[in-house]
Computed example of a mutant assay.
Amino acid sequence: MNEYHQQAIHNKNFLECIKSNYPSKFYDWKITVIFYIAIHLLKALGKKRNTLIGESHYDIFNNFDPGRTAKPVTTIPPEIWTTYKRLYKYSKSSRYDGIANQSIRDLALKADYDEVVKLKAEYCQYMDSQHLRLV
């Protein structure tokens, strides 16, 4: 287990704490933590394959996104890359897209969180197949 895999597990444990203690609050943070689980699993996969995938979001996108590179630094299924991009967008939106009415924002974030949980399951299923299980 490498340090990125350990960090992904750490983030998963933190997510479980938030979910247990605040089941109907802090959806923005839950979404963000799920994205950070995803990024650390992707970095763990790179490390496992002896490939530096990049340190910043910009680097990672430049190294994986088929719209930016014809030769990714390592291969992942296209649907996993799409899932990663969606998790990134939900995370960014949860942190930076404001809605003036707090009750509407909470409803929107809850709906986004429900979708992110589904995406996380798909993403983690692939990472499990790569021996990067969140135990």
Rank of each mutant, 00 (worst) to 15 (best):
W29S: 08
K30F: 04
N63V: 07
G98K: 15
L134D: 05
H57E: 11
M127P: 00
L119Q: 03
N2I: 01
T83W: 03
N2K: 07
H40A: 00
D114Y: 10
E115D: 12
N13S: 11
M1E: 06
K118N: 09
M127A: 05
R95L: 09
T51L: 05
Y88F: 04
Q125I: 08
L15F: 02
C17D: 15
Y36D: 14
A38I: 01
R86Q: 11
T51N: 08
M127F: 13
F61N: 01
I9L: 15
R95I: 06
Y126G: 10
D65N: 13
K92N: 08
G54R: 02
S93C: 01
Y96T: 04
R133D: 09
C124F: 02
L119D: 03
T32Q: 07
L41M: 06
W29F: 08
Q125Y: 14
Q6N: 14
K48R: 05
F35I: 12
Y58E: 15
D65T: 07
D112C: 10
N62Q: 15
Y90G: 02
K19G: 02
E16Q: 13
Q6L: 14
Y27E: 01
Q7M: 14
K89R: 10
I99F: 13
A100Q: 13
A8I: 02
Y58N: 15
E55Y: 12
Y27T: 00
L42M: 06
R68W: 00
L109Q: 09
D28Q: 03
K71M: 11
Y4M: 00
A44W: 01
P66K: 08
D97V: 09
Q6T: 11
C17V: 15
I104G: 11
V135I: 04
N62P: 13
I37Y: 02
D28S: 07
N11E: 07
I39R: 04
N11W: 07
K43G: 04
V73I: 03
I99Y: 14
N11V: 03
E122M: 11
Q125C: 12
N21P: 10
Y96V: 00
I18P: 03
A38C: 07
T69F: 07
I37Q: 01
A108W: 03
S93D: 05
Y90A: 04
A108N: 13
K110W: 10
I104C: 08
K120G: 06
H57V: 14
I60Y: 04
D106P: 11
D112P: 09
D114W: 09
N101A: 12
Y96H: 08
Y84C: 05
R133Q: 12
L109H: 08
L107G: 11
K25S: 05
A44E: 00
Y88I: 00
K19N: 10
K47F: 12
E3Q: 11
E16A: 14
T69I: 10
K92R: 08
Y27W: 06
Y27M: 00
P77Y: 13
A44H: 02
N62I: 07
L107A: 12
N13Q: 13
